[in-house]
Amino acid sequence: MTARPVTRRIGVGRTAVPLRGFYLGMLFLLYLPIGILFVFSFNAGTTLRFPIEALTLDWYAEVIGNGPMLAAARNSLLVGAGSATAATIIGLLVSTAVLRFRFRGRGALLALAGLPLIVPFVVMGVAFFLLFVAVDLPRSLLSVAIGHTIIATPYATLIQLARLSGLDPALEDAAMDLGATYPATLRRVVLPLMGPTVVAAWLTSFIVSFDEIAVAIFLVGGDPTFPVFLYGQVRFAQRLPVLIAMAVLLMIGTVALTLVALRLRTKE
């Protein structure tokens, strides 16, 4: 609180409902299980009993020697990068077409890009599974990446759509008046202005893919993504600590990416 006179508070009377306490309590409950995971990854035993008996860094050391797990993490990085790139491009193209042109099927295109958001993942999983069966494409990382592109498209589109709708089309007119072609205008005027948003869309799509399991379960072949690998191993009690150590490392990565994406989006 500053010395500035307090402006009139609006809403429920301050003392009536302990809102701050509610928020902090919620925060505590949200972080508690994650904290427990964190503790577990340093716990010497394979079951978690309080009080903790001994701490160790062994699980983190074991991560390095666990080939299949590292391969799964690499697979997820590849699928995430590939699908995020495709989804971001689709989102950018859809946003530009929809906001800068009037054409037949404009509404349909926008709806199509947003619809994957309202199809339950299990249904999407079945749909992609049948597609790859029908075209006789073996299930592989490629099939997972194609599936994830569709799932990430609504996010990538909505994020870029919001930014582009805030850009004045007059800028583009000016560039074209100066003799630029429209594609050149898009590339040299619009894209630079969209820069941080494109990155934010890419990061968001990447995170969506990186964490996705319900669709991936239907689509992986012999090469699992990290969540699918985790899902298969999670029942081995003895392997749990190593998995969690790896997951904690990845968690630090995704949280950092999320913070970057949030920052890029809120900066506008």
Partner: peptide, 25 residues
Amino acid sequence: LLIPFAVSYLLRVMAWKLMLGPDGG
């Protein structure tokens, strides 16, 4: 508030498994 949402979905489910299990938190 949003940071927990960035933590892997499966990991958060596993966290609850650890919390709720017979040997759990």
